[in-house]
Design a protein around this nucleic acid. Structure first.
Length: 425
RNA sequence: GCGGGCGUAGCUCAGUUGGUUAGAGCGUCAGGUUGUGGUCCUGAAUGUCGCGGGUUCGAAUCCCGUCGCUCGCCCCA
């Protein structure tokens, strides 16, 4: 086979196929997302995967723009595969802002595309669970969104031993920086430095801060802020209880009422890259912090007005399928997940096919999932196949069964059998 | 965009300082006589050794290029 022949057998770079075993895992994740969202009163929506490039560009920086899968349709329209769901959500809400009742709680499971180098935990295509609460000012929105995500994690077997939610507030950071006399213009540089703190040496970080325009005193102040470990320390540095501080305090209190405060912690280093976050931001990580963020999100204030809608404050959360699948796999929680195979039905001779079909139909009316053999086969071959395919039960119909009007249904795991009457033909 | 590692059977990999028809395990399929699976035994199929070029009497092995995969960095969902 030549190179060309082989490459046509592979999915394009960064894109994924889901064979049945992998699809079962994917379904388990989707179903956890879906039922957690429903339990928390979110309504599902969906939208087209293709968006107008113009809409996506409004929100994206130059760097992100290069990573958008864009193309022209045959009439020359500039279109793109959506890199995230939020612009679409904002568009849908802005278009019907007068007709919708707020605050609204919506969720979507959206396939998103990003043209970039693939790495561990990051493909060019992924599914992202999006939770949004729009037009609610209070931190109850943050609490609800976080609690919903935690609920999904717990359905997948991930608890406080495995993951932690790191919470911060951009507003609090801004207050702290203001209080230290660091000009607004260069707050962004400090946000960037926070992200680098573990990766670069302190000397390198302070050098980059200085080159961004911070004075020596500013850099020292920035380091005092970046070293904060608790909310209480932050309050002391602020010298007063700012609104941003009280919001965080209130959020932690709400999380404790949901009994998920064990998973939550204040973490000054969480800033999130996305430009549109304005208030509280959060990210969930595996305990060992070996993987990328499991989910992340925060409060945005300007999203709707940027699209020409009425200003509304919202909270959003994005939870991708790739990292959680890696975490589940690393912690051995995928072992039990495989395609559901209920009852296998086989028959010895072509003559038993009609009776087998009638029996299959009877079981199916009872709501069972029945895989009826497509051709007759030997008993040995049939049971061997049924066993390795992971069926719960198997039944084999030969002349004797048809004559007796009865078939033995065998439970494969313990080899016990029970008799079931065949329907009359 | 920058840097590291790796491409041999469906999968995991051996393959000695270049030397005959390239191997193992797992998996798959078929058999071990009469209609019941996980063990065991026997047998079988499958590779232009990623691709192209070069060096050589001779290349899976050495060199160059290329494509692909992968892991970091940058950035970010």
């Amino acid at each position: 086979m030549s190179d060309d022949d082989k490459s046509v057998l592979r999915a394009p770079r960064g894109m994924r196929d889901f064979y049945p075993d992998e699809m079962a895992v994917q379904n388990a994740i989707f179903s956890a997302w879906q039922s957690a969202a429903c339990r928390h009163g979110f309504l599902q929506y969906d939208a087209c995967v293709v968006e107008s490039l113009d809409l996506l560009k409004r929100k994206a920086g130059e760097e992100i723009e290069k990573q958008i899968y864009s193309f022209q349709d045959k009439s020359g329209r500039d279109l793109a595969l959506r890199p995230e769901m939020t612009p679409t959500l904002a568009r849908m809400i802005a278009a019907k802002q007068g007709a919708l009742s707020f605050p609204l709680k919506w969720f979507a499971i959206a396939q998103c595309f990003r043209y970039e180098r693939t790495t561990r935990g990051r493909k060019r295509e992924h599914y992202q669970w999006n939770l949004d609460i729009v037009d609610e000012q209070s931190v109850s929105a943050e609490a609800e969104v976080i609690a919903t995500a935690v609920s999904a994690l717990s359905m997948l077997g991930i608890g406080s031993d495995d993951a932690a939610i790191h919470i911060n507030s951009r507003a609090l950071l801004a207050d702290l920086l203001d209080g230290s006399g660091i000009p607004r213009k260069i707050h962004g540089a400090v946000f960037l430095a926070l992200d680098k703190l573990g990766k670069l040496t302190d000397a390198e970080v302070s050098a980059s801060l200085e080159s961004a325009g911070l004075s020596k005193e500013n850099v020292e102040a920035a380091f005092r802020i970046m070293r904060l470990e608790t909310l209480d320390e932050a309050r002391k540095l602020l010298g007063e209880e700012t609104e941003s501080y009280r919001e965080l305090l209130s959020l932690f209190s709400m999380l404790s009422h949901y009994k998920i405060d064990a998973m939550a912690r204040f973490d000054i280093s969480v800033v999130r890259g996305l430009g549109y976050y304005t208030g509280i931001v959060f990210e969930a990580f595996d305990k060992a912090k070996r993987l990328r963020a499991i989910f992340g999100g925060g409060r945005y204030d300007n999203l709707l007005q940027d699209l020409g809608g009425k200003p509304m404050s919202g909270v959003g959360l994005g939870f991708g399928d790739v990292v959680i699948a890696e975490l589940l796999s690393a912690s051995g929680r995928l072992n039990g997940i495989s395609p559901t195979r209920d009852l296998a039905l086989g028959y010895m001779e072509e003559a038993q096919r009609p009776a087998s079909m009638a029996a299959a139909e009877q079981f199916r009316r009872q709501g069972r999932s029945v895989d009826l053999a497509l051709r007759n086969q030997k008993a040995k071959a049939f049971f061997s196949w049924a066993n390795k395919s992971g069926f719960v039960e198997a039944a084999f119909i030969g002349p004797e069964e048809v004559l007796a009007g009865e078939v033995r249904v065998k439970t494969l795991e313990d080899r016990t059998e029970r008799s079931v009457a065949l329907p009359g033909c």
